[in-house]
Design a binder for these strands. Structure first.
Lengths: 340, 340
DNA sequence: TTGAAAGCGCTAACAC
DNA sequence: GTGTTAGCGCTTTCAA
């Protein structure tokens, strides 16, 4: 016998509790599941027996009988290394895990590596979880949108799909956030405002670029200074170089992530450009990069921990059959620091 | 019927596969579990049936019958916010999740908040997982060491306990790493080498301080410049201030984490001290703090992703009844950058 | 309000 | 090598 079997072997069963309390197994089950149709005295007796035995329901048996797993999958996108390097995702996981810690649900971490996507899909479809949380949804992975038809699925960020209106998602208003950031630059007298955007196959990439453009056009300013990054510091650094190489005047930068802004700072320093004297920067994300860059960044705070707890809450409510709005928008706010 | 039940309801069962393949359920079970005692032809037939039906074993039923859950808990310590802010932990989780993605095991994230520690304990003891991974083990939480007696438990980092020799853990050689870092400073002519250490109730905190002291004493240098931090940037910043406030000369600093080193940099800048001209710094961790500080830090790389995959591997092998050494030491190496 | 009985889908002896 | 037979521990009609 391996060590692993030891604990399960001696675990008290519902039947033992029933014997000790002098009732049937059904009754114990009702008490455990909080059924209202049980006499208070019986509840007391059963509860006492449960405490005495230290009874914990066997999750597998429960799942098998009830056809519910009490597990929720958190699907992590293909590019794992980048995923974990980004503090945004860590915060979202944290929020989701913390919310679920107070519920009866457990979080299962799933790595959807490209080679194993079929395995992941099967796992999800195979009734192993009651719901799924999908993060960082690119335009090329539509399988998760399909999954929505078979079980509750909630996306962190608006999913890229024709019928995203059918999906449940929690997001910040990226367009508005980008507009606000850009407007801040405009209000501070900047005239040549560039953007380093996110990838064009991610909703947050597209929407933030749109917000930047809207603000610029509303102010009658040029909106051609656009280079794309991948949300990472090095992506930001390279995009900034390309921007600088254009040889056009730039006095303002809207970076779609603080990580990219921090990378841009490196390129700017190389070129002998000072922030905020020569160029003002506003970014999105209030993470370590925003707080510890030199100078600290004026940025839009998108509460990512809260976004994590929100996607978890939505999926739980969906599982419970509650009526939940398809889109949940988390508010953002601008934090003024020294980069403008 | 809630959405959640939909998928499970139509899911093909092992029995359907058996019918389609014209064999008994036991045989299908054998094929699914890779039993060697099945004719190749039967394997082919059954595999074909499985593919045709898109059969996925029901995890709950399997667990119930086999008394194995195929789930492994990753227990995250009480202070969640700090936990997630530290890239070290994110890397360890990443490593563990990636390793398990290639196995039949699933990772369940458990938040062991102080208010819910009883719940966590119950969950673990209740046969919900086949094994547990414990990170960041402080000296005051001995319950997990006890848990080792009931199921395979592997610690990330040497657990703080009288009988840590009884536990399985994966760690770097913290003493040697700290010694090497300090020696590097000595070799570069530093004479007054301070340390900002980790907490004194964590093994990594204690061991790294010891390594620093050993190197200093071996070189006949003073080992009194010691202030404690909590591995975080702000902890490092405050510790550096206390060090500076002592008014003693300091020309070298060994920081027990890159995060603390990055915080120390802030305090140093305030005092008008330059790195590496006035003071040389070596830290531990090759994370983005080490890479993106100004200047980039000379540091000891402890491969945390690898540590994560190692704890996962050890627990899986333990579950499989294999013989595994109680301690697994991951090698470290020094990366030279510009802080010395 | 409670109990009896019938599975949930799978594994694991045990026979053949 | 393969099938038969019991359950694993729980939920859930259905009666009482």
């Amino acid at each position: 016998m391996s060590i692993g079997e030891a604990s399960a072997a001696n675990a008290p069963t519902l039947e033992r509790v029933a014997e000790l309390a002098g009732v049937s197994r059904s009754t114990v089950s009702r008490v455990v599941n909080g059924s209202p149709n049980v006499t208070p005295e019986v509840v007391t007796a059963v509860t006492a027996a449960i405490d005495r035995l230290g009874y914990v329901p066997n999750r597998a048996a429960r799942s098998l009988a009830s056809r519910r797993t009490h597990a929720i999958a958190l699907v992590i996108p293909e590019n794992t290394a980048k995923f974990f390097a980004d503090p945004y995702f860590a915060s979202v996981i944290q929020g989701a895990a913390m919310y679920l810690a107070d519920t009866e649900y457990t979080l299962s971490l799933l790595i959807a590596s490209e080679t194993e996507s079929e395995k992941t899909r099967r796992y999800l479809q195979g009734g192993n979880v009651d719901g799924a949380l999908i993060l960082s949804h690119h335009s090329d992975d539509s399988s998760y949108v399909q999954l929505s038809q078979r079980m509750p699925v909630v996306f962190g960020g608006r999913p890229m799909s024709e019928d995203s209106s059918q999906s449940y998602f929690v997001d910040v208003d990226n367009v508005a956030a980008a507009r606000e950031a850009t407007q801040y630059l405009i209000d501070h007298g900047k005239k040549n405002i560039a953007t380093i955007s996110g990838p064009h196959d991610m909703a947050s990439g597209i929407d933030r670029t749109q917000g930047w453009r809207e603000a610029l056009e509303a102010a009658g300013l040029d909106a051609s200074l656009h280079e794309e990054g991948d949300f990472s510091p090095s992506g930001g650094e390279q995009a900034m170089r390309r921007l600088l190489d254009r040889g056009q005047p730039i006095d303002g930068l809207f970076a779609a992530s603080a990580q990219m802004a921090s990378g841009a700072l490196v390129a700017l320093r190389e070129h002998g450009l000072r922030v905020p004297e020569d160029i003002g920067i506003v970014s999105i994300d209030n993470d370590y990069y925003a707080q510890n860059s030199l100078p600290p960044l004026t940025t839009i705070d998108q509460p990512s921990v809260r976004q994590g707890s929100a996607i978890a809450e939505v999926v739980v409510r969906l599982i419970n059959g509650e009526d939940v709005p398809r889109r949940t928008i988390i508010p953002t706010h601008l934090i003024e620091r020294q980069s403008v």
